[in-house]
Simulated assay, not measured.
Amino acid sequence: MTVVSDPFAPEFRTDPSPSYRILREAGRLHEYRPGIYLVPHYADCSAIFADPAFGHGYFSGINPFRPGVDPRNLPGSFLLMDPPDHTRLRAMVAPAFTSRAIDRLRDQITQTAITLLDTAATAGEIDFVADIAYLLPLTTICTILGIPRSDHATFGIWASAISRGLDPDALLSDNDKQARATAVLAFAEYFTDLIARRHADPGTDLLSTLVTETPLEIKELVDIAVLLLIAGHETTMNLIATGLLALAHNPKQREILRADPDSSRFAVEEFLRFDTPVPFPTRVAMQDLELADQTLPRGTGFILLAGSAHRDPAAFTDPDSLDITRFAPGRQTSRHLAFSHGPHFCIGAPLARLQAEVLFTELMRRTPDFTLLDPTPPYRESVSMRGPQSLPVRIPR
Rank of each mutant, 00 (worst) to 15 (best):
L228G: 07
L228R: 14
G232A: 02
E234V: 13
E234R: 14
T235L: 11
T236D: 00
T236Y: 01
L239R: 09
I240C: 00
A241V: 03
T242C: 09
T242H: 14
G243P: 07
G243Q: 07
L244E: 04
L244W: 09
L245T: 04
L245Y: 09
A246H: 11
L247S: 03
A248F: 03
N250W: 07
P251H: 05
K252R: 14
K252E: 13
R254M: 08
E255S: 13
I256G: 03
L257D: 00
R258V: 01
R258D: 00
A259M: 04
A259C: 06
D262C: 02
D262A: 14
S263H: 14
S263E: 07
S264P: 07
R265Q: 14
R265G: 03
F266P: 02
V268D: 04
V268T: 07
E270L: 07
L272Q: 12
R273L: 00
R273A: 00
D275G: 05
T276F: 13
P277F: 09
P279H: 10
P281D: 04
P281K: 08
Q287S: 12
E290A: 14
E290I: 06
E290C: 07
L291H: 06
A292K: 12
D293I: 00
D293E: 12
Q294D: 00
Q294C: 07
Q294W: 04
L296W: 06
P297I: 04
P297W: 08
R298Q: 13
G299N: 06
T300D: 02
G301R: 15
G301T: 14
L305H: 05
A306P: 01
A306V: 15
G307S: 15
G307I: 10
S308A: 15
A309S: 13
H310V: 01
R311D: 10
P313F: 11
D318M: 06
D318N: 15
D318Q: 15
D318L: 09
D318F: 10
D318A: 15
I324R: 06
I324Q: 05
T325K: 11
F327T: 09
F327S: 08
G330I: 00
G330Y: 08
R331W: 05
T333Y: 10
H336S: 03
